[in-house]
Computed example of a mutant assay.
Amino acid sequence: MNILLAVDGSEFSTRAVDALLVFAARLREMPQIHVLYVHLPIPIGFATKHVAREIVDAYYHEEGQAVVLPVAERLKQAGLGVQTHVRVGSPGETIAHAAKDLECDAVWMGTHGRGSVTQALLGSVAARVVALAHKPVTLVK
């Protein structure tokens, strides 16, 4: 079983990690966990005027690694197989595409748990993933 665990460094994603650890402990076979952080893109026109593309890419990588590596270490200590991924893009779409690209059987992520009015006005990463993913999505509040 492959599970995509989308994290953003927030307390909500920490709760998703906690819940996934409890879930995985109940399984007969330990799943492979793909820990994903999605970095919002810097407006390229602005960035490339002032900074080389390589520096922008290094920034994305460093910022993402700072989020995924502590999560990966925690999962490894629990005996889970882990791979880390950092991608750049719109979070909802990128998470859904990553789940497909990585052939994941499920997606786990935290949600801020905002009400339907806020979600309707502002949109929601979680709602977008649920709408786009072709596999089950577990949202943890």
Score class of each variant (00 low, 15 high):
57 D>P: 05
48 T>H: 05
114 R>N: 04
92 G>M: 08
101 D>A: 15
93 E>T: 10
39 H>W: 00
117 V>T: 14
128 R>F: 00
105 D>Y: 01
99 A>W: 01
71 V>P: 15
44 I>M: 07
58 A>T: 12
105 D>G: 15
130 V>S: 09
99 A>I: 11
42 I>C: 06
76 K>R: 15
93 E>G: 05
104 C>Y: 01
113 G>W: 01
40 L>P: 09
35 V>K: 01
81 G>V: 13
54 E>F: 02
111 T>H: 03
74 R>G: 10
122 L>D: 10
65 Q>F: 10
127 A>N: 14
43 P>W: 03
108 W>Q: 01
50 H>R: 14
120 A>D: 03
59 Y>R: 11
129 V>P: 06
60 Y>T: 07
71 V>S: 10
100 K>T: 11
51 V>A: 09
133 A>M: 11
79 G>I: 09
124 S>N: 04
95 I>L: 08
104 C>S: 03
104 C>Q: 03
59 Y>G: 09
119 Q>P: 01
83 Q>Y: 12
73 E>C: 11
48 T>A: 06
77 Q>F: 09
78 A>T: 13
91 P>H: 07
32 Q>P: 04
73 E>D: 14
46 F>H: 03
46 F>A: 12
32 Q>I: 03
131 A>N: 15
123 G>F: 05
112 H>Q: 04
107 V>R: 00
53 R>C: 00
73 E>P: 12
82 V>P: 03
90 S>Y: 04
125 V>D: 02
30 M>K: 11
77 Q>N: 13
83 Q>V: 14
52 A>Y: 08
63 E>L: 12
83 Q>L: 11
58 A>E: 13
59 Y>F: 10
129 V>F: 13
71 V>I: 14
74 R>H: 09
38 V>R: 13
89 G>T: 06
36 L>C: 04
124 S>G: 00
66 A>V: 10
90 S>C: 03
62 E>T: 14
122 L>H: 12
80 L>G: 08
75 L>T: 12
60 Y>H: 13
88 V>T: 11
60 Y>N: 10
41 P>K: 03
80 L>C: 08
67 V>M: 08
110 G>P: 11
104 C>F: 02
111 T>M: 02
122 L>Y: 08
46 F>K: 04
33 I>G: 07
97 H>L: 04
67 V>I: 14
93 E>F: 02
37 Y>M: 03
128 R>P: 00
55 I>L: 12
72 A>I: 12
46 F>D: 04
32 Q>T: 10
62 E>D: 14
81 G>W: 01
103 E>T: 06
92 G>N: 06
74 R>A: 08
127 A>H: 09
107 V>L: 04
95 I>M: 11
112 H>K: 07
